[in-house]
């Protein structure tokens, strides 16, 4: 994670455009990170809003894959977000997301964050997706895709709808 630039996930472990699922990993910063100086002094845990954002970014990469990088997803709604357990500094997070519904110009996902087998949070997320509104954003997302190991081969391997 690079919290300063709001990069909440580190690598894509698996992307399956046929089953419309994604698995990513994220390394929670160590205790010395400034986020933990206030959240909370003497009892550092990851803020739930950042875990929710991690689920949103994971879902977003899945939607980017499904739309073949032609449309950019934007988080529109968070439903039933449940923080089920504390996430301490230095944790390795596994984040899973799947498509629940593909609408016209929007998509709904369900996502959960695990440490090992323990589910720490989950939510249902709704995204609007639109054609890339800025060429710079598209360039940025391409660079990010490379950084987190977006499997480009998944795009060509996906079955036709």
């Amino acid at each position: 994670m690079k919290l300063e630039t709001f990069q909440l996930i580190d690598r894509i472990v698996d992307l399956n455009l046929d089953t419309k699922t994604i698995v990513v990993e994220a390394d929670v910063p160590p205790e010395c990170h400034s986020v933990f100086s206030g959240h909370f002094p003497g009892y550092p845990i990851m803020p739930g809003v950042l875990l929710t954002e991690a689920m949103a970014q994971s879902s977003g990469w899945l939607i980017l894959g499904l739309t073949k990088f032609e449309r950019m997803p934007f988080l529109a709604m968070v439903r039933e977000a449940k923080m089920r357990g504390f996430v301490p500094p230095g944790s390795l997070l596994t984040i899973e997301a799947k498509i629940e519904h593909e609408g016209s110009g929007f998509a709904v996902t369900s996502a959960k964050v695990r440490i090992g087998k323990d589910v720490k949070c989950n939510a249902e997320l709704t995204f609007r997706h639109v054609p890339f509104p800025s060429p710079d954003l598209r360039v940025h997302m391409d660079a990010m895709a490379t950084r987190i190991g977006f499997p480009q081969q998944a795009l060509s391997a996906a079955g036709n709808e």
Partner: peptide, 25 residues
């Protein structure tokens, strides 16, 4: 528009369709 997104989701699910909101818009 946000509430309508929620309504579209519920209608899509209830009727097993995909309302072409973008086309209509």
């Amino acid at each position: 528009s946000l509430d309508f997104l929620d309504i579209a989701f519920a209608i899509d699910k209830a009727f097993g369709i995909k309302m072409p909101l973008e086309k209509w818009t």
